[in-house]
Every structure is written in structure tokens, then in C-alpha cells.
């Protein structure tokens, strides 16, 4: 196609259609009276690891399902690897792999048979499907359980088989929907290690999660809530956006503490862990606040902003709804004071 301005390609923003893996434009989804997506625009570039982070019910799975061709949008359109997700569904499906939230293995068949049959579903020849299954069993460390019934595997092993299943047709794009829900720390680390390896080999990854530490290694993160994208940037830029450091106070009465801070000109947010205060220099205000706060302070903490803080600041709500996620890594260096 000659010419810099191709009229067939109105999206030519970030360097031609070949560079774009996913593009969504003003996506809406309604389920009866429920407006699950309220105008989503986003672009994911080839080779990027992109995380969609938000609390349960934010619209993550709905957006995921539309992009992965499982659901039709009520309005707007999405293109994945250059193809429309509704009209050219089959073309998209040939080139993506999906790990669903729910298990999608045949429990009574062996791991090997599961992978082999999925290879056939993706139009590999019998010989190619066998070879590809063996290759995946090897690279994902599943050789020892290859002959075991899928239903008899541990949670972490099952998820790795799901990943292998999604990779059977060597997709250009991997969709992961809350892929490590319910797994322990080790299994989660192992799973994300494999996903990153795929990404490092040039594959594009689109993942949803409500654990901030799972979104952290992504190249870019979209924070989503109530069907809207609140912010979309690199993890560092999102944290910089908060403009300062975070002062966290766990008090005997967080609501009262927040009210008092508000009177003093601060903008406090009450989260599951206490009262959150974003200030340019937390260490400078801490002594005064501790001395004058009319409620008893159990704990005060200063740290660099986390994605959790960004989310809380943007929405006034906690990301993980009080329920602590099994952390893969420790929180980034909390400087605690009593």
C-alpha cells in the first residue's frame, strides 16, 4: 500500500496497522438495564504486555470477552490483529489463544490428549498436533503429568495445562482472564513466569486481574471501574500521576480522622487499610498530623505510591475489597513508624 495517508486505515496513529494488536473504539455493552461498558477506547501494540486492572464487577470480563470474540458489543467496534471481532471473528480466532477464568479442559482425558485434540481443533495435522503437544509439555514442565487425567492435577498444574492449551496453535496474541484466580503464591509466580516468557519472545499479552501485583509487570495498565477506563499508562507513570508520597494512617476511627484531615485542607481517602493521604512530602507532615490527630493512631506508614493507592485515589474505593491477595512480591519498601 503506497502513500502515507491510507484512506482505508483511519487509525494510522501509532505506526501503521501492523503495529497494533488490539484497538477498541467507543465500546458499549448493555445487559438489559445494566450498562456494563460505557465507552471503552484503547490501543494495545504488538508485543506489549497489557493489563486490565479493576475490582470485581468493573467490566473487565465483559471487555475481555468482546475483544476475545466471545461477546458482541452493543455499540462500537473492536479490531484484533487487524480483524473486526464480530464480522471477522473466525480470522481473529485463528490467531489468538485464550485462558478463561473457568477451567476449560476435559477432565477425564489425559493432559497429552487434551493438548493433541486442541491442536486438531486449530487445524494442525495429526502429526503437527502431536509434535506441538510434546513441545509444550516440555517447555511448560508438564512431561511428568502428561499421561495423568486433567481432573487429577493440582490447581497450578491445571492452569499451566490451560496455558499450554491456549498456546497450542502458536497464537500471536494471548488473552488471560483472571488466569490465576485461587492459586497459591508459587503457582501464580510460575504461571506468570511462563506468560512473561511468551511475551519476551514477541507475543502480545492481554490480561485481566484484580490483583495489582499481577498487573505490575505489564508494560501498560488500564485501570477500569464501572465500565470506564479511568487511567491508562505505564505502571510508573500511573504512580507518578499521584504526585507525591503516600501517608497511610490506621486509626481507632478512620472516618473521624478523615473528617479532621479534610478540615485541615487534606484530601484523605478511606480504604481497607486505613486513611490514605497523598502529599508531596509525607515525612514533613507526619509529625504534625500524629501530634494533633484527635483519634488514636495505631500505625502510620509512608511509602511510594502503589497501584492500589492510584486506584483508591481515582475512585475512592479499594481495589481488592479488603480481601488480601496472596502477594507474589512484598509491598514496595514500606517505611513504617509507630
Amino acid at each position: 500500500m503506497p502513500g502515507p495517508a491510507d484512506p482505508q486505515d483511519p487509525r494510522g496513529d501509532s505506526g501503521g496497522p501492523g503495529e497494533i494488536a488490539i484497538e477498541a473504539r467507543s465500546l458499549h455493552k448493555r445487559y438489559g438495564a445494566v450498562h456494563a461498558l460505557r465507552g471503552i477506547d484503547l490501543v494495545v501494540r504488538r508485543g506489549e504486555m497489557f493489563a486490565l486492572l479493576g475490582p470485581n464487577g468493573a467490566g473487565k470480563t465483559t471487555l475481555f470477552s468482546i475483544l476475545a470474540t466471545l461477546l458482541r458489543p452493543s455499540e462500537g467496534e473492536a479490531r484484533v490483529l487487524g480483524h473486526d471481532t464480530v464480522r471477522e471473528r473466525a480470522r481473529v480466532r485463528e490467531r489468538i489463544g485464550i485462558v478463561f477464568q473457568e477451567p476449560a479442559l476435559e477432565g477425564k482425558l489425559s493432559v497429552r490428549d487434551n493438548l493433541y485434540l486442541m491442536g486438531l481443533f486449530y487445524r494442525l495435522s495429526s502429526r503437527a498436533a502431536k509434535a506441538r503437544s510434546e513441545e509444550l509439555l516440555h517447555t511448560l514442565g508438564l512431561e511428568e503429568v502428561a499421561e495423568r487425567e486433567a481432573q487429577k492435577l493440582s490447581g497450578g498444574q491445571k492452569r499451566r495445562v490451560e496455558l499450554a492449551r491456549a498456546l497450542v496453535a502458536s497464537p500471536d496474541l494471548l488473552f488471560l482472564d483472571e488466569a490465576t484466580l485461587g492459586l497459591d503464591v508459587d503457582a501464580r509466580r510460575q504461571f506468570w513466569g511462563e506468560a512473561r516468557r511468551y511475551s519476551q519472545r514477541g507475543g502480545t499479552v492481554f490480561l485481566t486481574t484484580h490483583y495489582m501485583d499481577e498487573a505490575e509487570p505489564a508494560d501498560r495498565i488500564a485501570l477500569i471501574d464501572h465500565g470506564r477506563i479511568l487511567a491508562l499508562d505505564t505502571p510508573q507513570a500511573l504512580k507518578n500521576r499521584i504526585g507525591g508520597g503516600v501517608l497511610l494512617l490506621a486509626t481507632a476511627d478512620d472516618a473521624r480522622a478523615a473528617a479532621w484531615l479534610h478540615e485541615r485542607g487534606f484530601e484523605p481517602e478511606v480504604g481497607a487499610r486505613g486513611v490514605l493521604l497523598v502529599v508531596p512530602e509525607p515525612a514533613a507532615v507526619l509529625p504534625e498530623v500524629l501530634a494533633q490527630l484527635p483519634v488514636r493512631t495505631h500505625r502510620a506508614e509512608i511509602h511510594e505510591p502503589s497501584l492500589e493507592d492510584v486506584f483508591l485515589k481515582l475512585t475512592g474505593r479499594a481495589l481488592e475489597d479488603g480481601q488480601a491477595a496472596p502477594r507474589v512480591r512484598g509491598a514496595s519498601g514500606p517505611g513504617a513508624a509507630q
Partner: peptide
């Protein structure tokens, strides 16, 4: 789902 999402 896994079957239906395959390009068959």
C-alpha cells in the same frame, strides 16, 4: 467455550 472459540 474452548471448543467454540476454536476456528472450526
Amino acid at each position: 467455550k474452548a471448543v467454540l472459540v476454536a476456528p472450526v
